[in-house]
C-alpha cells in the first residue's frame, strides 16, 4: 500500500464508514484510518461499539446490536475496496496539498480528507473514577452488564442513552437507580415511558454524584440532592455513566473552524469545512441530531462532496 491516497477518511463510525462505502464505489480506494481499540474513548466503529440494541436504524425491524451493525458497515466498505489502518492519527497538516496525516512517524498523504472522528462520552471527572474503571465503574453497558447479575447498580444521566443503558441493565441487575440531575428527563417520550414502566428502574431526581466509595471494587456512590442538599450513600456495586458527549476535535484545533463547543463547523447544507478539500461528517460536526442514521447520511454527503471536488480539481489541472 503506497502512502498516497485520493481520499483519507479519519474515523470509522457510521459517518466514516458510509463515506468509505460511497468513495470506494466511486473508485477512489479510500484509506480509512479507523482509530485504535479502547473501552473508554473513541474507537474503531465509533460510539455504537459500546452500545446495546439499536432499534431505530431503518432496515432492522427487530433491532440490531450496535457492534454487529458497525462490523456490517465495515465489511460493506471493505467489499468495495476501502483500505483500513487500525491506528490513531497523531498529527495533521492541512496547510498545503496534498494534505498530510501522521500516524506516529509514518506519513500518509491525500488529495482530499474526510474528517469523521465523532464524539466520545464525557466521564464524571471524580477522583475514584479511573481507579474503579473495570471494577464497578463502566463506560460500556453491553460489555459489563453481565457482571452485575442480581446486584443494585446506578446509571447516571437522563437522556436516551442513559435510559437505554438502564433498561438493558435490568436484564441482569436486581435494581437500577437512574440518577438524574434535574426533575425531568431529557430523553424521548417513548424512552421515558419505558423507564417509568420498568419495575426495576428507580428514578432518583435532582441528584448528582459527589464521590465513589471502594478501594478494590465499587461499594457505593455518595450523592447529594441539589434541592434539599441531603447527602446519602447509595450502596451500588456498579456505576454506568451516560451524561453527554464531547467532539473528538483536539487534532484540528487552530486548523479547522470550530464552534465554542469544539464541534467542527461545516458550510450549511454541505460537508465543506473552511479548508478546501477537507470535509467533515457525523457527530464531529453535529451536536443537534447525533444519530447513527444522520451520521451515515452526512457520511454519504461527504463522499459525494469529495468526489465532485476532486473531479473539479482534475479538470482544472488538465484544462
Amino acid at each position: 500500500m503506497t502512502n498516497h491516497h485520493r481520499v483519507i477518511i479519519i474515523g470509522s463510525g457510521p459517518a466514516g464508514l458510509t463515506a468509505a462505502i460511497y468513495s470506494a464505489r466511486a473508485d477512489l480506494a479510500p484509506l480509512v484510518i479507523e482509530g485504535e481499540p479502547s473501552s473508554t474513548s473513541d474507537q474503531p466503529g465509533g460510539q455504537l461499539m459500546l452500545t446495546t440494541e439499536v432499534e431505530n436504524f431503518p432496515g432492522f425491524p427487530s433491532g440490531v446490536m450496535g457492534p454487529e451493525l458497525m462490523l456490517q458497515f465495515r465489511d460493506q466498505a471493505a467489499r468495495f475496496g476501502a483500505h483500513f489502518l487500525t491506528a490513531k492519527v497523531t498529527a495533521i497538516d492541512f496547510s498545503e496539498r496534498p494534505f498530510k496525516v501522521w500516524v506516529r512517524d509514518e506519513i500518509y498523504t491525500a488529495d482530499a480528507v474526510i474528517v469523521s472522528t465523532g464524539a466520545q462520552s464525557v466521564m464524571l471527572g471524580l477522583e475514584g473514577e479511573n481507579r474503579l474503571l473495570g471494577h464497578g465503574v463502566s463506560t460500556c453497558a453491553t460489555c459489563d452488564g453481565f457482571f452485575f447479575r442480581d446486584q443494585h447498580i446506578a446509571v447516571v444521566g437522563g437522556g436516551d442513552s442513559a435510559i437505554e443503558e438502564a433498561i438493558f441493565l435490568t436484564k441482569f441487575a436486581s435494581k437500577v437507580s437512574l440518577l438524574v440531575r434535574r426533575d425531568e428527563l431529557r430523553a424521548s417520550k417513548i424512552m421515558q415511558q419505558r423507564a417509568f414502566k420498568n419495575p426495576k428502574i428507580e428514578i432518583v431526581w435532582n441528584t448528582v454524584v459527589d464521590d465513589l466509595v471502594g478501594s478494590i471494587r465499587l461499594e457505593g456512590a455518595v450523592v447529594h440532592n441539589v434541592v434539599t442538599g441531603d447527602v446519602t450513600t447509595l450502596p451500588v456495586t456498579g456505576l454506568f455513566v451516560a451524561i453527554g458527549h464531547r467532539p473528538n476535535t483536539d487534532l484540528f484545533k487552530g486548523v479547522l473552524q470550530m464552534g465554542d463547543n469544539g464541534y467542527l463547523i461545516t458550510q450549511p447544507g454541505s460537508t465543506y469545512t473552511d479548508v478546501e478539500g477537507v470535509f467533515a461528517c457525523g457527530d464531529v460536526q453535529d451536536h443537534t441530531y447525533r444519530q447513527a442514521v444522520t451520521a451515515a447520511g452526512s457520511g454519504c454527503m461527504a463522499a459525494i462532496d469529495a468526489e465532485r471536488w476532486l473531479e473539479a480539481q482534475s479538470h482544472r489541472s488538465h484544462g
Binding site: T40, Q43, K88, L133, G134, H135, F147
Partner: peptide
C-alpha cells in the same frame, strides 16, 4: 467485572491485569 480483560498468568499466578481494549 469488565471485558475485555487480559490476565497474564506466570507459573500459575496472576501477574498482570489489563482492563479494557487498547491498540496494539
Amino acid at each position: 467485572m469488565s471485558i475485555p480483560t487480559l490476565l497474564v498468568f506466570d507459573k500459575g499466578e496472576v501477574r498482570k491485569r489489563v482492563v479494557g481494549a487498547k491498540g496494539k
